[in-house]
Design a protein around this nucleic acid. Structure first.
Length: 321
DNA sequence: AATGGGTCCAACCGCAGAGGA
DNA sequence: ATCCTCTGCGGTTGGACCCAT
């Protein structure tokens, strides 16, 4: 009785996209802008369903997507945000605007889960003789789906790009210029506005975080740089400057409430010239679990921009553990 | 060189929510 | 209120690739 799958029509092509298809899709979007995906296959002659076109654009062809290896800092952010938010990849991706949720999800499933599992097992093995196990966030230790494979996934980190992957990167680069001058898509809203809304929600929600308070799909409302109308659109620099975690300089754990722990993460907005409205990037009210410390050293280094070396160190999981 | 197993990731699937008619 | 379309999201998978034998 359910709706038939959207892509099961006869004649609808599946499988990897070819460069020719990408060019057709990109050309069409250059002309009409993203959106109204239903009409894309019809108008372009692409033998793809609308959903496939949207996904291809969102995950690969859209300008501003960073491909290639994740930096240790990005890894740390993903690990921390995953611990905070769970598998809310879109929400996590909103804090890494250059990465897609699909990318982050894949990276988590293929790399980080294993690393964390190794880390956890290593910590478990030393838990008997010390209190170090308390440093593992409960959110990590509760993860049930972590698989325990210990193969050397790092060896494959650099293998990813195929020739065609680099060609899509080139298409994205080409589009960068277009995005700077094209009219604003209908679904684009100001990031500032969005953050204000999020902050308002946070205020109204007793400054506690919930999944809906996290800006989702930030890509969709990433402001255009050098927007023609000027107005209060942010510059690219402003936009980058308010990215959460980029300049974290203050992490406050509020334990005043005995039933919960609230962490408020703030950053300097030195570049934006405004340090009040957007300074509170992420406020979380975590349910306080039995022995979970409010801020483990692990979380701290994840949040500490200057701890990249430590991130790499722990990520490499030296035999010390 | 052949091949079999392991790994990775691009793409697909199915569901749910939003919004309009 | 209901239906339909569009879009977003998270989970899953198939094929390509790598490596050891």
């Amino acid at each position: 009785m359910g709706r038939p799958p959207c892509c099961d029509k006869v004649g609808v092509k599946k499988g990897p996209w070819t460069p020719e298809e990408d060019i057709i899709l990109v050309s069409y979007i250059q002309e009409h802008g993203p959106g109204n995906w239903r009409s894309v296959p019809t108008n372009t002659g692409l033998l793809r369903c609308s959903k496939s076109c949207r996904l291809r654009w969102t995950n690969y062809l859209r300008p501003g997507i960073k491909r290639g290896n994740f930096t240790p800092h990005e890894e740390g952010m993903i690990i921390h945000l995953q611990a905070l938010l769970g598998n809310k990849w879109a929400a996590i991706a909103s804090y890494l605007p250059q990465r897609t949720d699909n990318d982050i999800k894949n990276y988590w499933n293929t790399h980080l889960k294993k690393k964390l599992k190794k880390f956890q097992s290593a910590m478990d093995s030393t838990a008997q003789d010390s209190t170090t196990s308390q440093f593992i966030p409960k959110s990590f230790s509760d993860r049930k789906s972590l698989d325990f494979t210990t193969e050397s996934s790092n060896l494959r980190l650099s293998q990813t790009s195929t020739t065609y992957a680099s060609s899509t990167e080139n298409i994205s680069r080409l589009l960068e210029g277009w995005m700077r001058t094209s009219p604003k898509p209908s679904n684009t809203i100001l990031l500032k506005e969005k953050l204000d809304q999020d902050n308002d929600r946070l205020e109204n929600n007793d400054r506690r975080i919930c999944s809906s308070s996290v800006p989702t799909s930030l890509h969709c409302y990433r402001p255009k740089v050098e927007e023609e109308a000027g107005g209060d659109l942010m510059s690219h620099e402003d936009y980058e400057s308010i990215l959460p975690f980029e300049n974290l300089n203050n992490v406050v754990w509020d334990k005043s409430n005995s039933d919960s722990t609230t962490v408020t993460i703030t950053k300097d907005c030195q570049n934006s010239g405004s340090d009040e409205d957007h300074s509170t990037i992420l406020t979380e009210k975590k349910q306080k679990s039995e022995n979970t410390p409010p801020l483990s050293f692990l979380e701290k280094w994840l949040l500490d921009e200057n701890s990249t070396g430590q991130v790499e160190e722990i990520m490499e999981l030296s035999p010390i553990f």
